[in-house]
Design a protein around this nucleic acid. Structure first.
Lengths: 216, 216, 216, 216
DNA sequence: TATGAATGAGTATTCATTCAT
DNA sequence: TATGAATGAATACTCATTCAT
């Protein structure tokens, strides 16, 4: 280091704390702007310039807060997944029996994305250029995948509590994930309406019958 | 205008017919090229120039055959959906009982996209920028949706033949569509592998149990 | 190919010839512009935009004529080296004895760069970022190096004709190359003047004494 | 202004001295960092930010010690030239006769840059964008040129000691400078290897024959 | 019908520098 | 003295599209 670092005075510490808080806040504003642009323009239109402009910044300024465009999206996705996780956990915690926990978790997962269509897009962003995984860097990728899996985990846990062997519980979890994803896809692309069906109704039916089969 | 429009002479008509046939053929060549480029490079790499080059044309020349890049993709999708329809019809036609028809149709649908991932991308391309419908013009959109529905119809038909009321048969069809879509999504994004599951196995399980419930 | 290629009509051929000539001419104009920008702004300022602007084009248009910025410079350098070669060959061809050929070749090399300082820069461009070879692609690089060597070759040839063994002739050639380069460097950076010396005088002295030692 | 300027108290003066010493020291640390970055990344990679980071500073902080990026380089070059001077002086001081002094000085000059290629880059940096003098301000420029000349001076001195008139001694010095520069250029750009020659061998040959001609 | 030519808007990212604190 | 924040200009290159010929 270039200077001898003495212990921080309380005043200095306070100032630094304030500065960091402000910085964190601005980071948040940029993320918010990113979300908005992304909501209005879709993933393709969400250029670094557009995001910066919406946040009241120069494009160059964003690089002070994020390393790259990918980093912005990764952060957005991270937050999204953690909210998803909270939503599922919250739903599960209010349920007594394994059966109700299973249904609560599955429906919470479904409902989260039904209510926040853009979060679904965000999840799909990991797989850009058609369906080719994009990889935001190995580590970040792993962390995001782990967060997704964590959000789904309560489903498998409930199934196990109902007496399903672990493998079966896992398959059930994946199956629920798939069904929810499919319905959400149809829902958000207007195809459910096209067939005159109700997405959450279908989800509930599915989960009811699926749950009934657990452990048999 | 000063030009007197006379009725077409037979000779003129014949010539025009030939010209149109030739033109149609060249359109086909371009589509073929587009498919190939698209298969090799994915949606992102499939630029108008790349397609044109592969077809032995200049980029500018493509605009004689298609209005825009979108139009090329729409056409590709149209062909894809009609192939899907044929695949499903073919599978159904070999099945005797309604039950086997139901399973055959559903699995054919699933398998078509499992085998041709790019066709799935193409389907999703209609909803680019995440899930925002791109709208290639109302009419074209309608036609494509109709083609998709036609490909799924045998599923509902089989369900009806098994005794399900029309509404329920329709819902079943949508549900199958959703489940297949979800599994395919997971499959093509590597998430099925991540959870150690087999997509077509899950699809078969799903359809078996689903079929068992028809009419009850 | 998309169309059946029939033999070109004379009219078509003529037209194509004209078009190609025009195109070639415009390529030349761009190269000229590049040279000028490069002369005024130096290598650092010679951006693709600046060149395009000077040529009356959009930056994007340049890519119709050249694959990349490097390609523009490579072409410039190629022309420069071929002119250098011609200059040396011309000088040599007017000399009768090996001794005069040696001097003529060396002085022609020196004089070419003394008269055209920017061509020297161009040569150094191959080695950008300090002295790190940049490599315009292996093949192009090789071709340019070969052109340079060809321009110097007459020096070694003359030395051999004077009785020097091949190895010694080659070393002489390199030595001449080095001395000329050094003097030119000093000349173009104003250092010769700083020491009150005459670059071409020094070059002549050097070559005279050097020639006297050949074969001894 | 309303401020009464009083004579500095001894205490104030002492404090100021300490402050300046500290400042000078930190300047040195930055220069050291600059040198290191520059050695690792070359001129292109040596951004103000990279240098600052290595020195443990923010980019902005550098501007308290240097006026601009150019200024940093100028300072680096100044140090480099003074080291060059020391190297030459050291070599000369160990030599008894004028002849050996001449050879020692010339070879020390050559060897310094052969061993420290980055110092050569630094020298060329003054003439960036090809050969266009960059001008760090007239004065600085003059100082740097003087330092270079001082490093070369022993060569001319030795020649004079051998009996050469001053003018001839000066020309010899320039000629040696040129030859060394040329060989170094070829050496650092890989062209010596290309012709299968040894740079220091050629330098030694050159200086030997050149020395033999002094005074005749 | 097809081409060559050209454009304008767009991409992410880097950089030296400035300034209020 | 030093920092965090911000900027504006710059970079090479790509793309879908248009238009005169």
């Amino acid at each position: 280091m270039a200077v001898t670092k003495t212990k921080e005075s309380p005043e200095t510490r306070r100032r630094r704390g304030r500065r960091e808080a402000v910085s964190e806040h601005r980071r948040g504003l940029i993320l918010k702007a990113a979300r908005e642009v992304f909501e209005k323009e879709g993933l393709e239109g969400a250029s670094i310039r557009a995001i910066a402009a919406r946040a009241g910044y120069t494009a160059a300024a964003l690089y002070f807060y994020f390393d790259s465009k990918e980093a912005v999206y990764a952060e957005l996705l991270r937050v999204s997944l953690s909210e998803l996780g909270r939503a599922v956990d919250g739903a599960v915690s209010g349920a007594r029996t394994p059966e109700t926990r299973l249904r609560a978790a599955a429906m919470a997962f479904f409902q989260f994305y039904a209510d926040n269509p853009r979060d679904l897009d965000l999840g799909f962003y990991l797989f850009r250029g058609g369906m080719k995984p994009v990889g935001l860097g190995r580590e970040r990728d792993k962390a995001l995948n782990a967060a997704l899996e964590a959000a789904l985990r309560p489903i498998a846990d409930a199934a196990e509590a109902m007496g399903a062997p672990r493998d079966e519980a896992n398959l059930l979890m994946v199956d629920v994930f798939a069904h929810a994803s499919g319905l959400l896809l149809l829902l958000h692309t207007g195809r459910i309406r096209m067939f005159g069906a109700s997405a959450s109704g279908l989800m509930e039916d599915y989960i009811r019958y699926r749950a009934a089969r657990v452990g048999k």
